[in-house]
Nucleic acid binder design. Sequence first.
DNA 1: TGAATTCAGAGTGTTTTACTCGGAATTAAC
DNA 2: GTTAATTCCGAGTAAAACACTCTGAATTCA
Lengths: 145, 145
Amino acid sequence: MKLSTRGKYGLLAMYDLAVNDQKPVAIKAIAQRQGISDAYLEQLIASLKKARLVSSTRGAQGGYQLTRPPHTISIGEILLALEGSVSVTDCVSSPDCGQGCDCPSRPVFHKIQEGIDHILADLTLADMLDCKTDSPEHASVEATI
Amino acid sequence: MKLSTRGKYGLLAMYDLAVNDQKPVAIKAIAQRQGISDAYLEQLIASLKKARLVSSTRGAQGGYQLTRPPHTISIGEILLALEGSVSVTDCVSSPDCGQGCDCPSRPVFHKIQEGIDHILADLTLADMLDCKTDSPEHASVEATI
DNA sequence: TGAATTCAGAGTGTTTTACTCGGAATTAAC
DNA sequence: GTTAATTCCGAGTAAAACACTCTGAATTCA
């Protein structure tokens, strides 16, 4: 159930683009600021571009930019672009899950998926920017299971 | 973000135990009914036992049983026992996530985690049993992203 | 022309996953 | 008390996924 580094780094990259939104931002700049390998980041951004979440300008002084304002880009979209899919299990989508057809897990998986999709659709890139203005630290950070 | 087979199979095993609750159920029986390798299932059940979700009876006619009634066992507990942790990322729990300290992803990850935890805490094993009584198929099954 | 960039794809070491296997310990049934 | 059915335990392994790296084009600003 963990997110891979693709998701994590990609989110940071999108955040970086949202913050530096005036002109094209080079991969190297993002990588340095966010502490990520730039060769790797290149791949991730390629996925983001394919999903049309960012646009690119080639050549010197080139770089990447968001295609839409941060509050219209959901975290779910970003993660989907990077992780390929954000589904808990294939069972949910495919009718033939292997264990015959009326698998007892199905409805449960379906509910979990709905919940997660909902959360990811509601959160947007703007929520990452907010935390800057939002000065006082969020209180409890321990309860994670 | 996908669940591993541990989670999936383990959930099916728990379901099987919930259905056959009168006496100890042998691994072989569960494995056969649910279509899982019994040697592998053995490992999974070991995790469930360590988490005290099931108890065992050794020897011939032995097997496993739930330690608590289905409606008191949350899906979250089960998944936690099997997958080790159900956190989206370690960032959420550990204060030092690598990228310096006030990482912009944090609050977002935190919210996602809260949401998932909530869903998993609310769903219980009983919800898997319900689908039996709940005769008519749930309508839409397509929307998964 | 030269330097800065994106673009594209192949290559690689490490880790995780999803198992299998063998054998010891325990217990009900005969 | 022997036998058959089981749980228990730990080691081993093939395949896939992950997290990168590297090389070399193509493009564009200065």
